[in-house]
Design a protein around this nucleic acid. Structure first.
Length: 459
RNA sequence: UCCUGCUUAGCUCAGUCGGUAGAGCGGGUGGCUGUUAACCACUAGGUCGGCGGUUCAAGUCCGUCAGCAGGAGCCA
């Protein structure tokens, strides 16, 4: 097997007989020497391969184009010129895959918008090489964090029959003939559908996650999630991945502690394992990124009750587009002002008004607020949302009634409170949102290999 | 769904006061003793998003439709 370029570039001394497979990123030719930059996706740097005029096929090599797949044998020597430590002096070079003249990637910057239209070659562009290496490293860090702490990953269902997963438009899953669905009393008869009932793609694995938390104590879900909202923004996708840990025998304050440890751990892991990629993002995508990430890791997070947050914002005299008032949800401008100006570090806002949060969040003793938390970080705002869950059956029933939900639909969720129910808590993190924060990329479509958004499901 | 903006060469863009279209990159040809978004010369490449209108004349002004992007709402 040939060596990966990342390993070749980390050699400590010159070596004969290096073999490398990769794609040509750019070519510079002159009469007697031609430089190829070879990339294989293993790192942000390319390997400079040098062809001299003595090669028997030099004339042909001069015409090899950007994008070609090549196999090169050569000698690794210290590079005499600036720009790279090592370079490969070619003794043999074969083109394994040629490139037609309409190859879309050029040696200049393309717009991300254009690159989305050529998602089949986009991963070969430097920025996207870095994005998807970091995506992988981040994903591994998530699993490592939980595995190290004894959390079990639960594969919650992607197709769900419960209509009670929370807000958000759902994608219907059906095998019925859409041109002529069976009807009963005028409406569509889902009893004849594949599952014998109406089914959809999941919008959250949290409720199922609670089932497993009440057996394994500490669990997490990490899987695809679907929202059929017609959202045209840089932060929304129809298909994304979500991480939802759930812990039994756990209150809100330990939930916060785990969230803080978690976010620091995954950022630290990426800083260590993808250092060159982070430097690339820092230089080209988001100046100051490394400093932002390092300061997140090194800060101790604050905790601020919602009620205090509101009065701080009211006292600040800052002008906001949206009003500040107890009982209203914090807008993203408020969240950013809190974490960037008032607190100047990551902050958990906790104990939100009952009316603006979900039914399953644990009612506080004041009966006006619930044990919810949002982690706000500078530059982004909310990055994690979580809560302690209501474990008291009578209070849960009152909450269902308060939010006009049917206890029958939540029969197994209620059972959990009757069968050894105990205090438990968890939080949710959008994987792509975290990836955007860590890479500085500003559009969710550019951190997903093949994104699905309203009106767009190419590739 | 609402608001705003954009659509000119394969790509990134310029195009003034309305007068029949430009550059760089990429492709092709040639040159160059080591380049780093290499450089130099030449060359091919366009129904200016579609339709309609105003005008002697529309890439440019007006209307409309489409596509895309951003913001709002909603949320992760």
């Amino acid at each position: 097997m040939t060596q990966r370029i990342v390993d070749i570039l980390h050699e400590v001394e010159p070596r004969e007989n290096i073999e490398v497979d990769g794609w040509i990123q750019t070519v510079r030719t002159s009469k007697s020497v031609t430089f190829f930059e070879i990339g294989d996706g293993s790192c942000i740097q390319n390997l400079q391969a040098v062809a001299s005029v003595e090669l028997s096929n030099y004339d042909a090599l001069q015409k090899v184009q950007t994008g070609s797949a090549v196999h090169i044998v050569g000698k690794l020597v210290a590079s005499p010129a600036k720009g790279q430590k090592w370079e490969l002096h070619i003794s043999e070079m074969n083109v394994l895959g040629t490139v037609d003249e309409d190859y879309p990637l050029q040696k200049k910057r393309h717009s991300f918008e254009f690159l989305r239209t050529v998602a089949h070659v986009r991963p070969r562009a430097r920025t996207f090489g870095a994005v998807f290496r970091v995506r992988h490293a981040l994903q591994m860090a998530v699993h490592r964090f939980f595995d190290d702490r004894g959390f079990i990953q639960v594969h919650t269902p992607i197709i769900t029959g419960s209509d009670c997963e929370g807000a958000g438009q759902m994608f219907r899953v059906t095998t019925l003939d859409m041109n002529a669905p069976p009807r009963h009393d005028g409406s569509i008869d889902y009893s004849q559908d594949f599952f014998g009932k109406e089914t959809s793609l999941t919008v959250s694995g949290q409720l199922e996650g609670e089932i497993f938390a009440l057996a394994f104590k500490n669990i997490y879900t990490f899987g695809p999630t679907f929202r059929a909202e017609n959202s045209h923004t840089a932060r929304h996708a129809a298909e994304f991945w979500m991480i939802e840990p759930e812990m039994a025998f756990c209150d809100l304050s330990r939930d916060q502690q785990v969230a803080e440890d978690f976010i620091k751990y995954i950022v630290t892991q990426v800083l260590e394992r993808c250092s060159d990629d982070i430097d690339f993002f820092d230089q080209w995508i988001d100046k100051g990124l490394r400093e932002k990430l390092e300061s997140l890791v090194n800060s101790s997070f604050e905790t601020l009750p919602y009620t205090e947050a509101v009065s701080l914002l009211e006292k600040s005299k800052q002008k906001f587009e949206y009003p500040i008032k107890w009982g209203l949800d914090l807008q993203s401008e408020h969240e950013r002002f809190l974490t960037e100006q008032l607190i100047q570090k990551p902050v958990f806002v906790i104990d939100y008004p009952r009316d603006i949060k979900a039914f399953y969040m644990r009612l506080n003793d004041d009966e006006k607020t619930v044990a919810a938390m949002d982690l706000l970080v500078p530059k982004v705002g909310e990055i994690i949302g979580g809560s302690q869950r209501e474990e008291r059956i009578d209070v849960l029933d009152a909450q269902l009634q308060y939010f006009d939900l049917s206890p029958v639909d939540y029969w197994w969720y209620r059972d959990l409170r009757r069968f050894g129910g105990v205090a438990h808590a968890g939080f949710g993190l959008g994987f792509e949102r975290a990836l955007m924060y860590i890479t500085g990329m500003q559009n969710i479509r550019d951190v997903i290999p093949f994104s699905r958004t309203p009106g767009s499901a190419d590739f």
